[in-house]
Design a binder for these strands. Structure first.
Lengths: 129, 129
DNA sequence: TCCTTAAACAACCAACTGGTTGAATACAAA
DNA sequence: TTTGTATTCAACCAGTTGGTTGTTTAAGGA
């Protein structure tokens, strides 16, 4: 599923070094050595980071003599933004409906507490990944 | 900085169970017990997940008798989308400039290999987090 | 051929993660 | 006050992660 893919992408970007690598690749391809240079870590460590980014589909590598130039694959970003937008929009929609809810609460004399309220709204949840 | 915040947000969403919790909270607030119910894990485990989401700023909790209703904080999504869009746009811009590059390569008789190319483009990278 | 460079692989280690169970806390209701 | 319910805290465990160093592999240049 794209379920697992999404986990790998978010997980890959959870590390500051890896986000920095993505930032640098966004302006142009680079080799492992070039990417490792600015950090206080070994080339092997960066190689591991790149493997994570590659498995997440964020980076691809080509062959070129001994070098393995890394290239940023921007399409994967769509996967994230789609997921984010889905729930952001849903939450905002719910937020904008708040005035309606408040009006209903005013109309209703009984002090309907938030617990019941959340339970009701929870019932109309759908399975989502 | 928001550097660390971004790490926490991405890290929080790297777990499928936590993404599912976010999805469910997007349609309405819920208590820990309600959130735990559909999963084959203990309430304590879900409580831990909620702590992670809370520390990432994705979820806030109020008090209400013994219950701790959880609420989705959608603003944090902006942080992510801003980061993503920045590098996506940069990468796409570079991609759209590819025809210019190809034209230059045609004009240039010497077979400029990709290594030099990536090295050049890498020089105009800027520090970014 | 031999030497150098670029990168990956392997084994190891400390720290973190996601889960568990059991005990403590906070509040409501009897 | 006692009991029940909702949640958190604490200790523990197995698996993962991000780093290390040392050893291959792959390719170019002397």
């Amino acid at each position: 599923m794209s379920e697992d893919r999404l986990s790998r992408v978010f997980s890959a970007l959870a590390d500051p070094t890896r986000r920095d690598i993505v930032a640098r690749l966004s302006v142009g391809d680079a080799t492992v050595g070039q990417l490792a240079e600015p950090y206080g870590v070994s080339v092997q460590a960066v190689s591991k980071h790149l493997k994570v980014l590659e498995e997440a589909g964020l980076v691809s590598r080509s062959r070129e003599a001994q070098r393995r130039p890394c290239h940023l694959e921007a399409e994967v970003f769509d996967l994230m933004t789609k997921w984010i937008e889905r729930y952001r929009l849903r939450a905002e929609e719910r937020f904008s409906r708040l005035d309606t809810v408040l009006a209903e609460l005013n109309a209703d004399e009984s002090t309907t507490d938030q617990a019941q309220q959340s339970e009701q709204s929870h019932q109309r949840r759908g399975a989502a990944s």
